[in-house]
């Protein structure tokens, strides 16, 4: 029997579009997970990552400044300016640790995050 896989991303409504400042971030809570969501208006893109900066394990990334490094969208942790790619979560300072990213979409002024348990 043939089984066709169907994309079944479950989307969770976490915020209203206006809850997130333009070119900035906000933090949402889902169950016990803290997630940073970013409204990258300059690029017309939205991103979601873990809120914890893995460097000193602080719940802070949503308060980080966003921008780009050679066109890669990134967030800089306010504590020690560790940079992470918003696309892949990769550490852009060449260090080991990286951050988790989540699928995110905005529909009719509602912000949804996917990939949550």
């Amino acid at each position: 029997m043939q089984v066709t896989s169907i994309e079944t991303t479950k989307w969770v409504l976490v915020a209203k579009e206006e809850d997130v400042p333009a070119n900035g971030g906000s933090c949402v809570m889902y169950k016990n997970e803290q997630i940073a969501i970013f409204n990258f208006k300059k690029r017309d893109e939205w991103y979601a990552t873990q809120n914890m900066c893995p460097h000193k394990k602080q719940m802070i990334l949503s308060r980080g400044m966003i921008g780009d490094k050679e066109c890669e969208p990134k967030v800089a942790c306010p504590y020690h300016k560790k940079n992470f790619s918003l696309k892949t979560g990769e550490n852009l300072n060449g260090e080991e640790y990286s951050i988790k990213t989540y699928p995110i979409k905005v529909e009719a002024g509602n912000v949804y995050i996917g990939g949550l348990e």
């Binding site: 300059k42 400044m65 921008g67 780009d68 066109c71 969208p73 800089a76 940079n83």
Partner: peptide
């Protein structure tokens, strides 16, 4: 050019 960063913004 680009989207800015934590150096030029502040």
């Amino acid at each position: 050019s680009g989207d800015g960063c934590e150096v030029c913004k502040p």
